[in-house]
Design a protein around this nucleic acid. Sequence first.
DNA 1: CGGGGGATTGATAACTTTCAAACTAGGTGG
DNA 2: CCACCTAGTTTGAAAGTTATCAATCCCCCG
Lengths: 264, 264
Amino acid sequence: MTLANFNTSSPIAEKERPDKSNARGIVVSLKKSGFVKCRECSVRPFCIASKTNDKGMQAFNEISNHPAPTQKGDYFYHQGDTFTSLYRVRSGAVKSYHIDKNGQEHIIGFHLPGELFGTDGMANGQHQNFAQALDTSTVCEMNYEQLGSLLKKSPDLQQKMFQILSAECIQKIEPLLFLHHRPVEERLVTFIADISSRYQSRGLSPKRFILPMSRRDIAHHLGTTEETISRLFSRIQRMGILLVEKRTIIIKDMEKLQASSMAL
Amino acid sequence: MTLANFNTSSPIAEKERPDKSNARGIVVSLKKSGFVKCRECSVRPFCIASKTNDKGMQAFNEISNHPAPTQKGDYFYHQGDTFTSLYRVRSGAVKSYHIDKNGQEHIIGFHLPGELFGTDGMANGQHQNFAQALDTSTVCEMNYEQLGSLLKKSPDLQQKMFQILSAECIQKIEPLLFLHHRPVEERLVTFIADISSRYQSRGLSPKRFILPMSRRDIAHHLGTTEETISRLFSRIQRMGILLVEKRTIIIKDMEKLQASSMAL
DNA sequence: CGGGGGATTGATAACTTTCAAACTAGGTGG
DNA sequence: CCACCTAGTTTGAAAGTTATCAATCCCCCG
């Protein structure tokens, strides 16, 4: 089987009339296929599985699934899908977005390597958002039901999972709430500073990186328009804080960046 | 003991230099004091304790504490406090707000009777926000450590708690994220519609209620200023959707209200 | 009656969106 | 191989929204 058929639909076309057959079909058909699992995982140091012992890791291994790489534009799940699994990004990048009743797209967040996503389905068993690959991406998929059974057996692990999930939900989302109380320039600076620190915490360069998302995605995430984002990148560059070349960002003055960014 | 000494500090004074001695002092001294507990609780139908059997309720009763009423302006906890408990509002109203490194106040949310608060401390053991009574309020305080022990013993309860908490975290907070992507008038209309439905779900009138919070609180919650809120209330009233008399809201045209409000 | 916080209203300034146009880089087909 | 096409991005000008500063009003309470 070739991967050629992954490319037949553009991200936009996918977005307008989401069709999960390609992305999900692969996920399902490659279950337990023999791809690398927990022990060899590239993001292992950032995974809950690493917070347990060998036996625990073995258990995680059982419920985890490393499906084949997903192509840019493919979906991990759709808004309204039945919630079955939590995911962790191993490589690439994923965006979560919601389409409201007026057809407006709202970007909930971006998931970089090592980060968790899929929690939007935990509340009522249905995913509230779409999760779409921004790039060729690989993930780890953990079955939630099996995860539940696993946690029932280990109170300690359960406690840790509680912690991790509440951190995901609260520490990551609540600060975003009041991002929107500030002018857009500050939001953008904060966004860049946040991406930078997330790359750094994964051992990548905090001063030079490539944004996996479009200007439009950034705009929708920050609650503004792509034109405004573009203008502000220009302005921030003129101020000598960043060097912006399309999606490549080089931070020239990290101190000024952090000083202008919001308290998170 | 009288309650007179509760009134010595105004909400503002409390806010500027928070002093928890009165509110928390009472909480501690009345622990296990004989106030009504789960079985007689007014918000029992909305509490997790009601989702279990008599024995489970007994267990909840053990870890729950119904402290004396808290006066307007008093704090349940402060930003930075060690996290010990989750709370549920029994009567009155509570606001959660965060002060960022620039001294700016951000209102995370308002908690009405039956609603949970305190989850902002779960992530790292420290409260991220202040929780302050907007009015004379009574709460139910559940010790988190004891709750954890309780959950360890009952996988089913654990599952339910997971559910409830993720619903709190995700269903309530994520939608707020994209509220801020819309003009302020829409945010305000949505805010009123939300309060209305929350009162309704607690068996109170959805068409006529009194807002427990000030214009400034609403403004800070919606990411705007009190002047703008005031102007918009006037405009929405001129449109015949609401009748606004200070903090009393009467919804004249519920359909128009919901049509103008955002998809949540 | 006077003080004071909360709320409202007005005028102006600042910011952001909208509509339009042009530019860029990568991919396509002749 | 080049012209063309397209999505993504940038820039400009005008319109719209919101913040800011300032003044006034209102009502509760001492």
